[in-house]
Design a protein around this nucleic acid. Structure first.
Lengths: 343, 343
DNA sequence: CAAAAAAATACAATCTGTGGTATATTTTTT
DNA sequence: AAAAAATATACCACAGATTGTATTTTTTTG
């Protein structure tokens, strides 16, 4: 168990300059623009840098240039395994690209009441705007390059990348219709979230397009929680004329529906088809693998960093860019065509 | 869609000083030590600060003081839902406390080959040392306060906080023994990880303490993956004299064992008791809730930030502190006493 | 009330870089 | 060979704070 010795006094650009026998500014030039300094001086500087193991102070650099290569990711502090997967997927995507682009990633967990400071941050990514619209406005007001992901923001001049929730939902329901289902119920998420309301929208659009009209009780609004999903499932399955298929606004709710069905002796997919949304790996662990709508999380994450780094680069004129990424229907075992369901 | 106007030129300490009619250093003193400046000057400075909405530049501060309040969390870049939960739990714990202590949290995803820079970082938390021992040594060499969590490091002078994997495993197995089980198998994780080898150790200790000796085939070593867990489960359950209980080194493997059991018609808990490790919420979603060993992730996370901030405070003498946190056995539905298992 | 002590404040150096400009040096052109 | 152009480097003024020291102001005290 050796004790680490105190590190020698920090070596600054001065020491390098002295050792190399050139001026400070020459060292600075060598380090920054490769072009300016050439020949013997350049070699000597590089040699000195290596010999002293010199690393410029980021703080001095940022102070001098006024630029920061720190990206702040602002993301809700929710709990739960489904959210964990989602959040970490985003973080991995963003983190990986930040690393590639030599950006530092600062993490900022928020809830509705956190007021944060953006001091020293060069760019901001808002994931999942929750009740914190004012934070976004503050960020925009500060002039720091900002981008919003997983929310389509149309009333503010800010780049955003969202997922085609409506389209994904519509496709899912069309798939069920294609299997012959007509009695298709929907368990929605919390409609104050954009995702949930768009998914409901997509569900309704698919029905309308196919001229299917259903009783109001076929749509049940929840807050995304397991508890409410359970209640919804029970209500639907005990209907005198129950649905033959249920589309839920999230995988977690779909799994809960499966659990309820199991308890009530309703077989999946023979008696009931289920489609979820998110493509959470949990959907694979049960007795019946869940058919679901996959969202391109990693792609969204990486795209956001790419766009942000462009904004941070600064020279570009800030054309506000709104992106919507397509989803993909992942067909597994939880759906069956209605004709074969009488087995 | 309003366009944000360019923010006014940054206001620095100078402007405040001028407006308040005092010197720059007086302003600085007001902002930092509350004591020095009093009376009218103090009031005027505070007034000016508010009026100009002055916020000191972190870079200048760090440059001047040589101190940084940035904490870097170095954590593996693994994927998968079980890891996601674990990692996000840690991140939430650390992030929350960082916020409380006014520390910035920098995230650093690593794999064995990433070489990272610790420039401008005031403290480092290593979570789950993977193949990156050299990174840890680099950190220690740099003199930056460092702490390791979820690994017990005894050969280096560094604070660490780990979980009592051996004790947790031992308790779990003792619980099974208490239920009357004697044929208890273990599916281990990747033994190059400390957690897995300690869990195996605890399993063996519990058996030894109760003078139970079992054939070698009752211990199966895996890499934590679902695939290998499946193979292990199949091998165990097809034994001529199969185990009546299985203790796995992780919940994910326990769930896989459950799936295999279901396929083979082995009832849980009637025919087979299962205990996992981790207390991952996924364990709650299946038909039978999993009995498991809970690790105090949040506590570990928060403790690490608390210790680190002390180290970063600096004045303290660096007494190396090694902490081991206890686990808790969470009893749910996946175990049954051996006598009642003949039903 | 003046002198001494204490407190408050201003000045200037420092932290470590960047970047514009002036000067010195080399290269190219005529 | 001289003039013009291009290039390399040094010098210096920043960036925005902190902090030790000198100085001024205030308070205390004999």
């Amino acid at each position: 168990m050796r004790r680490q010795k105190e590190p020698a006094k920090n070596i600054s650009i001065k020491h390098v300059a002295k050792l190399a026998g050139v001026s400070i500014s020459t060292v600075s030039r060598v380090i920054n623009k490769n072009s300016a300094v050439k020949g013997k001086n350049r070699t000597q500087v590089l040699e000195a840098v290596k010999q002293l193991n010199y690393q410029p102070s980021v703080f001095a650099q940022r102070l001098a240039t006024g630029k920061s290569n720190v990206v702040a990711l602002v993301i809700p502090r929710y709990e739960g395994i489904f959210y964990s997967f989602y959040a970490l997927e985003l973080i991995r995507g963003i983190g990986t690209l930040c690393e590639a682009l030599k950006l530092d990633l600062l993490l900022h967990l928020t809830d509705t009441k956190t007021s944060f400071n953006l001091k020293g941050v060069g760019g901001i990514i808002f994931a999942d705007l929750i009740g914190n619209k004012h934070q976004l406005e503050e960020a925009l007001g500060s002039g720091i390059p900002t981008i919003v992901i997983n929310n389509y923001v149309d009333h503010l001049e800010v780049n955003c990348i969202a997922i085609d929730n409506a389209g994904g939902a519509k496709n899912a329901v069309k798939y069920l219709i294609g299997l012959g289902h007509r009695l298709i119920a929907h368990i929605s998420g919390d409609l104050i979230t954009q995702a949930a309301s768009k998914r409901l929208e997509g569900y309704e659009a698919a029905l309308k397009e196919n001229k299917i009209s259903l009783p109001a009780e076929f749509i049940i609004k929840t807050d995304y929680s397991r508890g409410q999903a359970r209640l919804a499932a029970e209500k639907l399955l005990k209907l005198s004329r129950p649905p033959t298929a249920i589309f839920t606004a999230s995988d977690s709710m779909a799994l809960e529906v499966m659990a309820v069905a199991r308890e009530l002796g309703v077989r999946i997919p023979e008696d009931l088809s289920i489609v979820g949304f998110d493509d959470n790996p949990s959907g694979l662990y049960g007795p019946v693998a869940l058919t679901t709508v996959r969202q391109p999380l990693i792609k969204m994450a990486q795209e956001s960093v790419r766009e942000l780094s462009l904004l941070m680069g600064g020279t570009k004129k800030p054309i506000t860019k709104k992106t919507i990424l397509p989803t993909e229907l992942i067909i597994r075992e939880s759906c069956q065509s209605v004709s074969s369901s009488k087995n």
